[in-house]
Amino acid sequence: MNQEESAKIIIYTPESQIRTPRKLIRSMWNDLKDSRELAWRLFIRDLSAQYRQSLFGVLWAFAPPIITSLIFIVLNSRNVINFGETDIPYPVFVLIGTLLWQIFTESLNAPLKSVTAAKPLLVKVNFTHEALIISAIYLVLFNTLIKLIIMLGVVIVFKIPLTWGLLLALLPILGLIFLGICIGLLLTPIGMLYTDVTSSLPIATQLFFFVTPVVYPVPNTMPFSLIALINPVSPLLNAARDLIVKGTMSNLIPFLVVSALTFIFSFIAWVIYRLALPIIIERISA
């Protein structure tokens, strides 16, 4: 048959790929390139299947954050809870905050969800596993696009001045997405083996929601100010919100640190995912 392809030789041995790092990185790069088309097709498949079986379609993408926001707006206006003064109208603060939070949690859940759904495929067909993660990222980006449109709507309705910050906000939003994907990807190998991860993820996210300044401004006093210091989500979320509503951002350093760490850990998570999948496939299909 095709002579050029016949020349391709694949060798399978028990040795860990991590012992030959240069080869590992080269094959990661190649697989990333090879998986683009499949990732796109899987994305289109999931998207069209999702909307073909739904009457309200896109509505489900923005209903949850709006409802969460409404709850907090009502609670705040009735003085049931009081988070202190925000320098912008509280409804805008909460709406933008929850939408950004939603982007993060969706990204967090995306890798495990995508890989779990592909279980029957994984145990039977050899394909580039990166495609699953990339198609998950595509799906998150698509949903983020819808949320950006709502955010723009919020900004216009509440007569917030439009600034270049709206565009700049895309950077911290990308940061949120990759932070979510990165943590999600780190959890994926164990999550494939034990269902405990999938079961505990919603609870953990809920707890995380309250220690992230989503519906309240960053506290100034110790020990609560630790929330902003330790929690990696808060600099990204605050930066995005500030850029959208004020056009500027205050704390550049934490934002840059988190972005750099996200980048490094994403790569580590990718290596782990790659090394782990053959072992996991063996365990879930035996």
Binding site: M1, N2, E5, S6, A7, K8, I9, I10, I11, Y12, T13, P14, L122, V123, K124, V125, N126, P278, I279, I281, E282
Partner: peptide, 16 residues
């Protein structure tokens, strides 16, 4: 190529 061997070596030449 779905699972790795625990011992030995497998060599594949071409598209499978």
């Amino acid at each position: 190529g779905l699972i790795k061997p625990d011992q030995g070596r497998i060599e594949i030449k071409g598209r499978m």
